[in-house]
Design a protein around this nucleic acid. Structure first.
Ligand SMILES: [Mn+2]
Ligand SMILES: [Mn+2]
Ligand SMILES: [Mn+2]
Ligand SMILES: [Mn+2]
Lengths: 223, 223
DNA sequence: GGATAGATTTTGACAATTCAAAATAAAGCC
DNA sequence: GGCTTTATTTTGAATTGTCAAAATCTATCC
């Protein structure tokens, strides 16, 4: 059985590898994600390489092996199904559940995972719109436009909020920016770094380009 | 924050202290419960004593302090509420849930605990009839008769099954011996070490005195 | 009252995970 | 090409939790 530390390293390696064209994860990025000093990441990556869970390319970075990816996807599936459970069944605040899931993802057995999945009706995404890996180990990695990059003056549907910080999620929630919400970009002022939004029957409000970039959107078919 | 190991030691210390008249837990019993060699228990108990969670009486045993008891009750509450959730909501096998709760009890925050408690309707006992400590830290330690000691030929209600092993629980379940079930002792043969039971509309069946001692019963008021 | 058996403690060691700080490699810049 | 900056690795040490085996108590039994 993978230890909690091993599960966390592999999960973060997967998330970073997904955002990298060639799947190579620099050591420093992993260390930052894990909130450890670089030397600690090096030590752990070497141990993971010895267990066949990653490939270590010295001074370049690391890659998940098939075995490592399998473990990482299982942990990520647990994380996101737990978040969905905490929000949909226990009615917890979506800004809080990431921290809870960070612990629970290591304590849930595959048997409990299956029951949770059934209870929730086999959801495809978690409360933030993050895709839930399937039991078979496939992960929907579709990329969308964001409020920082999408067309203006057309109706949009929020599909994903890619920031786990409680502050940001509370802000998003306060403005109704949850997956499924409808909105459109009224104006984008690049020099000022501002995006102005409006939701149906709502007042226009502004957010920074950086914040807008964390909200993924699709054209609103029904809009 | 107490580590997982510390939480487990304190929880087992509490369970052993509850079954001891003066609250003194011999080192060997703790070591056996924790499945470690005696020296390991000594080392840990000294560390717990340094943190003010137990009192170490060398060569005699240990006692929980108020602080240690508080932590232990919180872990036990998590354990038993999780078991209840797994059986009542996720519909898992009551023989399986102890092992699952053994992990989950360390991953559940107090916030999640509160929500679970509300979802379950503030239960007083878990699926095995084990009392769930209250938020305030009280633990119902009522002692009942067992099938090995109770009167014969009167209607009984099962109130508790005090064995966490999956094998025993599966056996009990197969004979309908869950808390709430009604049965009576047909015969008790001490030399043979056998107790013969019968459930309403069921065939008589036998079990050992040792097994019978793990099933707690009360007179069946409605019987 | 001393030998003995059983429980407990001590000692020395190891695995896992981490940090601080020094050493090294790579990449980019005159 | 040598110099500088930055990322990575190495080294030495600490912490937590564990075991094996030796040492030490303590209660009990002639
Ligand atoms: Mn985690
Ligand atoms: Mn999420
Ligand atoms: Mn446990
Ligand atoms: Mn129980």
């Amino acid at each position: 059985m993978a230890t909690i530390a091993v599960e966390n390293y592999l999960k973060h390696a997967l998330l970073l590898a997904e955002r990298s064209p060639d799947g190579l994860v620099p050591m420093g990025e992993l260390a930052t994600a894990m909130e450890v000093v670089p030397g600690t990441a090096t030590t752990m990556v070497k141990a993971l390489a010895d267990s066949g869970l990653v490939l270590h390319e010295p001074r370049r970075g690391l890659r998940l092996t098939a075995a490592g990816r399998r473990v990482a996807l299982n942990v990520l599936r647990k994380h996101r199904l737990v978040e969905t459970f905490l929000v949909n069944v226990l009615e917890m605040d979506w800004a809080q559940v990431h921290a809870e899931a960070e612990q629970l993802e290591h304590a849930i057995s595959d048997a409990v995972l299956d029951r949770l999945d059934a209870l929730l009706g086999h959801p495809a995404t978690d409360p933030h719109g993050d895709p839930i890996p399937s039991v078979e180990g496939t992960l929907n990695s579709a990329v969308y436009a964001t409020l920082a990059t999408c067309a203006t003056e057309i109706s949009l549907r929020v599909v994903r909020v890619t920031d786990q910080s409680a502050d940001f999620l509370t802000f998003a929630e306060a403005h109704g920016l949850r997956p499924g919400a409808v909105a459109h970009v009224v104006d984008r002022n690049l020099p000022a770094g501002l995006v102005t939004l409006r939701r149906p029957r709502g007042k226009p409000f502004a957010l920074s380009l950086a914040a807008a970039g964390r909200i993924w959107v699709a054209p609103n078919e029904a809009g």
